[in-house]
Nucleic acid binder design. Sequence first.
RNA 1: CGGGGCAUGGUGUAAUGGCUAACAUUUCCGCUUUGGGAGCGGACGAUUCCCGGUUCGAGUCCGGGUGCCCCGACCA
Length: 407
Amino acid sequence: MLQSQLFTKTQKEAPKDEEATNAKLLIRGGFVDKLMAGVYTFLPLGFRVLKKIENIIRKEMLKAGGQEILMPTLHPKHIWESTGRWETMDDLYKLKDKSGKDFALGSTHEEVITSLMKKFIISYNDLPKYVFQIQNKFRDEPRAKSGLLRTREFIMKDLYSFHSDEKDMEDYYDKIKAHYKSIFDTCGISRETFITFASGGSFSKYSHEFQTVTEAGEDRIFLCEKCKVAVNSEIISIQDSCPECGNKNLAEKKAIEVGNIFKLKTKFSDSFELKFTDKDGSEKDVIMGCYGLGPARVMGAVVEVHHDENGIIWPESVAPFRIHLLSLGENKKSEKIYNNLKKQGIEVLYDDREDVSAGEKFAEADLIGIPYRAVISEKTGAQIEIKRRNSREVKLVNIEELVEFLS
RNA sequence: CGGGGCAUGGUGUAAUGGCUAACAUUUCCGCUUUGGGAGCGGACGAUUCCCGGUUCGAGUCCGGGUGCCCCGACCA
């Protein structure tokens, strides 16, 4: 992409209100725009990052046997009444149509998916099934905060699993834990992200959260450095011990919840009478699990974890582009290299602007944080100067070496 | 929802109750320049968040709203 065509601009200074690093850098770099508290537009650069993260998640969900669908955002009141949550969920956005009928904006989709699957799950032959979506959720948060970390409209991947017995659900639940680990690993935050015991709500003793340790986080967790497992402060006091190894020496950390998985069991199948006929002809409740993960929150967490004083340092897997090509008054040479890289299928942001100083291009490149920076200038001759965003070391290479290195 | 802070061109800031609201940056034009937000000259850009009050006079003082940020409560 030609940087001269990008409609967004970077800012030297962050809006004075913002305190969270992810908010400051993402706004300064032109990744997101805030429409109101907790509601953001994803601009071209930010949109690319978001899609990268979504695709990492999507790929992993497909590996886990998930089938992707898209459920509606607008929900009729009656579906929420089926579970009693129309009254009890106080972060549900409610609205009326012209005739006075009540609706809700979906904050989660157990109601919709359960009533959907009732139409298709009839016998044990139809189980297990795994269904997911990546979709916008709405929650009437009393306090949106910290940039992308806590918003009122947000993107969520929600996977729901349907099983004929608890054992099968438990096995799948553990399998998803492993897939989640792999997602956070690919996104470059596995070192900071820990599986965390949390309250199970009304369904079970524990649920599991995936918490990324960062100062901007709003949760407190107690981390067992040995097991790399944590406990949410909501269900533990400091004198408690690691649920895995009994270690009493836990480290208190601030963290942000990037994923949460639950054993729903029959909570929703009961409400919707989602049953199946087993082999012996008897009718049984379908056992459910649900598994949430927030791509936009992951994006914010990645920035919190990977940045320096000059800007963002995107991990390659989620970067908006692979390489940032800067032309310092050498557009003829640069254009050839740009076209060459594009032909190789390498995602490149080409800073072709002619009226922008070298210093400004460097500063913007650091702010935007693309993993590799290539510079073409009078100095570089027929070669290309290449530098990693997270390193100071520069190297001169020719185009063949560059292409080979990047592919 | 309780507590605290803030609100002035797009962004960041300045302005004893007193003249035409200033500066930097951004943007635009011209020249110059190309290795860390470069230089010179010029131009555009504001109903000082809103409503009301005090005053001869309000960006500034008072009252009430609204918005944003932070702390807490809340958080499938």
